[in-house]
């Protein structure tokens, strides 16, 4: 179940990678920012849930569009490290702005006003947290929607063409300048949604960002451009973490469960860099 959360967070990363071959290092800051703003709005300002959701989604989309227009568009045709560093800069900027607004404080949820249902579901002897279950349901919907979008709609196929080569896509009639902002709109939307889901499961603080970093190993294991890979790899990493927490913590001490996904990532990159479902890359001069 923990793994499903990683899978949800991974969606925004995969969307961007799939359609523009850029790994969004600012994703953590975006998700964390969306979560902090949302819960600040509903708990401290008392704004109704649904209008707060709409507000946060709108805000995230505007921010994402801003990143695309003012930062990313200028990097077209630059070397591969250019977007990485640019996005790290943007991440630092967003993180700083969020801390500035909220002084990095922990927002305490008010009892009785939870977004997702609390408590546990009893299936014989198995306990399932209701909030995780709801999160899984929402994400399953998201996944199906995204997979269908990228496989069957003209727009989705255009986005995949974009990832291959901007020039080729443009010459085949894909409007690159119109599609790139669209990608970022989806990224903004997904960051807002994942931020809200994560914030209702975990304590709401700046630490949410570290969970987003944990989505990187998941994304890599699943194959960088595959949604179904995420669905498989998320639980795999989650289960690996739980097993390690159970079997290895007594031997190696606390904290090993946080490192295990990265160890796995190390191995995956060395053995099979394209992951489970990813596309193999062939290099030419």
């Amino acid at each position: 179940m923990v793994g499903m959360v990683y899978a949800i967070v991974g969606t925004a990363l995969v969307v961007l990678w799939k359609s523009s071959k850029v790994l969004n290092f600012a994703q953590g800051a975006l998700t964390m920012g969306a979560a902090l703003v949302f819960f600040h709005l509903i708990y401290d300002r008392g704004i109704p849930k649904w209008s707060a959701i709409l507000l946060v989604i709108a805000g995230a989309i505007i921010l994402a569009l801003g990143i695309e227009r003012f930062a990313m568009r200028r990097l077209i045709g630059r070397p591969i490290w250019a977007p990485i560093i640019m996005l790290l800069g943007v991440a630092t900027l967003v993180r700083g702005a969020v801390f500035l607004a909220f002084s990095a404080s922990v927002i305490i949820p008010k009892p009785g006003n939870y977004l997702l249902p609390r408590g546990f579901l009893h299936l014989d002897s198995i306990l399932i947290s209701k909030s995780y279950l709801t999160a899984c349901a929402i994400s399953a919907g998201l996944f199906i929607g995204l997979i269908l979008f990228f496989r069957y709609t003209k727009l989705g196929l255009g986005l995949r063409a974009l990832a291959e080569d901007h020039q080729v896509a443009q010459s085949l009639g894909v409007n690159v300048k119109r599609l790139l902002p669209l990608v970022w709109i989806i990224v903004g939307l997904l960051s807002a949604v994942t931020g809200i889901i994560m914030g209702s499961i975990y304590p709401i603080s700046a630490d949410l960002e570290t969970f987003v970093w944990l989505a990187l190993p998941v994304m890599l294991l699943g194959g960088m451009e595959s949604f179904s890979g995420l669905l498989l790899a998320g639980p795999m990493i989650g289960i690996a973490q739980l097993m390690c927490a159970y079997y290895l913590v007594p031997i190696l001490g606390n904290g090993i469960e946080v490192v295990v996904p990265y160890l796995l990532m190390f191995i995956v990159v060395l053995v099979r860099p394209w992951g489970i479902f990813g596309l193999r890359k062939i290099e030419r001069i």
Partner: peptide
């Protein structure tokens, strides 16, 4: 946390502006 976060904002901004 004001000073720390202001530093983050300023450094992030510096990188973005320089890059552009």
């Amino acid at each position: 946390g004001f000073v720390g976060s202001a530093t983050l904002v300023v450094t992030g901004l510096a990188v973005v502006l320089f890059f552009i």
